[in-house]
C-alpha cells in the first residue's frame, strides 16, 4: 500500500520534471524559462526524493530515508535562491525582457545598481554590454 503510493509520487515527480524541461525549450526568454524550470523541476525532484524516502522507510532502510529527506530540504531551500540570483545577474548583465512583456518596474533599480558598481570601479559596463 505504502509502496504503491510512493511509486505514484515518484511518477508524478517525473512528469513534473519533464514539463519543466519542455518549458525550458518552449518559453521565450530567460526569466520565463527560469520561472517554469525552477518551479517544475524543484517540486518534481522533491517528490522523487520523498517517494524514495517513503520506500526507504518502508523497507526499514533508515539511512536512505533520512538522507533523501535532508536532500529534499536542501533542494527546496537552494533552488529558488539560485533562480533569483541568475535572474538578477541576467538583468544586470543586460539581457532584455521578451518583446511581448507588458511592464518593467526593475529598470530604475537596475540602473542605480549599475551606476553604483561603475562608481566603485568594480566593472565598466560599457565594455561588457552585449550588442
Amino acid at each position: 500500500m505504502l509502496e504503491t503510493a510512493c511509486y505514484w509520487v515518484i511518477g508524478i515527480g517525473l512528469v513534473f520534471d519533464l514539463f519543466g524541461c519542455i518549458g525550458l525549450i518552449r518559453l521565450p526568454d530567460v526569466y520565463n524559462r527560469a520561472q517554469a524550470a525552477t518551479k517544475c523541476v524543484t517540486l518534481g525532484t522533491c517528490m522523487i526524493l520523498l517517494g524514495v524516502a517513503g520506500l526507504g522507510f518502508g523497507r526499514a532502510d533508515w539511512p536512505m530515508g533520512v538522507k533523501a529527506v535532508i536532500c529534499a530540504v536542501f533542494i527546496l531551500l537552494t533552488n529558488p535562491v539560485a533562480a533569483h540570483a541568475i535572474c538578477r545577474g541576467a538583468y544586470l548583465s543586460g539581457v532584455k525582457l521578451w518583446e511581448g512583456s507588458v511592464e518593467d518596474a526593475f529598470a530604475d533599480r537596475a540602473r542605480d545598481l549599475r551606476d553604483r558598481q561603475t562608481e566603485e570601479g568594480l566593472v565598466s559596463h560599457e565594455e561588457t554590454e552585449t550588442p
Partner: peptide, 10 residues
C-alpha cells in the same frame, strides 16, 4: 500558443 503576459512588477 503559450499564453503568457510577462513583466516585472514591484
Amino acid at each position: 500558443d503559450v499564453p503568457i503576459r510577462p513583466g516585472i512588477v514591484k
